[in-house]
Amino acid sequence: MMYQIRQMWLALRGNFTAALATLTTMTLTLALLGAVSLLTLNLERTLSGLEKEVEVSAFLLESANDATLLKTVQALPQVASARIVTKGKALEQLGQDLPGILEPGSLEENPLPDSLRLTLKNPRDVQVVAAQLKALVGVESVEYGEGYVDQALSTLESVRFLGYGLVLLLLLNSLFNILSTVRVGMFARRVEIEVMRLLGARRGFIRAPYVLEGIVLGLLSSLITAALLYPAYFALTGQLRTLLPSLPLLEDRRVVLELLVGLVGLGVLVGGLGSWFAANRYLRELE
C-alpha cells in the first residue's frame, strides 16, 4: 500500500501540469454543479410556496346555477378542491382585505358576482382548467395568477435544464481530463509498466496508483469546492435575507452540508471511475 501511494505521488508529480488542469476543471465543474443545485433548491422552495397559493376563480353570471356548476367542476380530474364564494362573502372578504375602502352599508347594491374558487392538484394544469371553465355555461370570466405562475415555472425549468446541461458537459469534460491525465501518466511510465507486466504483475497492481491518483484528484477538487461553496452560500443568503426577508431561502445548514457531502462523493466517484477506466483501457491496448 505504501508503495502504491508513493507511486501515485510520483505519477502526480511527474505529470503535474495535467494533474493541475484536471484539478482546476473538476473544481470549477463541481462548484457550478453545487451552485446550480442550491439555486434550484431555493427556486423550488419559492415556487412550492407560490403553487400552494395558486387559486383559479371563475366569476359567475347572475343567471348561473351555482350548485350544478360546482358539481361539474368538482368532477374535473385536475381539480383538488372547489368551493362557492357568494357575492355576500366576497364583499365581506374585500372589506377585511382593504379596510377603509368600503364604509359599511355605503353600497346600495353588492356589485360583486358569485364565484367558484378552485385549487388544482398540479398547478401546471392551470391553463387547461381555465379554458374548460370558460367554456361552461354561466361562467362569465376566469382569473388566475396568469403570467406570474407560468413564468416562474418556466424559469425554474429552464434554469434547471440549462444548469444541469452545462454541468453534464463539464462533468464529461472533467472525465476526459482524467482520462488523458492517466494516459499521459501511464505513457510516461510505459517502460516500467511493460517490465511489471513481463514480471507477472496483475492489472490491478499496475492500475492501483493511477486509480488512487484519480480518487485523490476527485477528493481534492470536491473538498476545495465544498470549502468555497459553503461560506459563500451562507454569506449570500445572509445578504438576501436582509434585502428580501420574505424569500423562503434554504438556510438549513444540514441540508446544505448533505448536498456538499454528495458533491464530494460525486467527485471521488468521477475521479476513481475515470482513472480506473483509463488505466484499464491502456493496459488492454498493451495486450
Partner: peptide, 12 residues
C-alpha cells in the same frame, strides 16, 4: 488472457 498471463509469467 489478463490475469492468467500474469500467473504464467510468475512461474518464469
Amino acid at each position: 488472457r489478463g490475469g492468467r498471463v500474469a500467473l504464467h509469467r510468475r512461474r518464469i
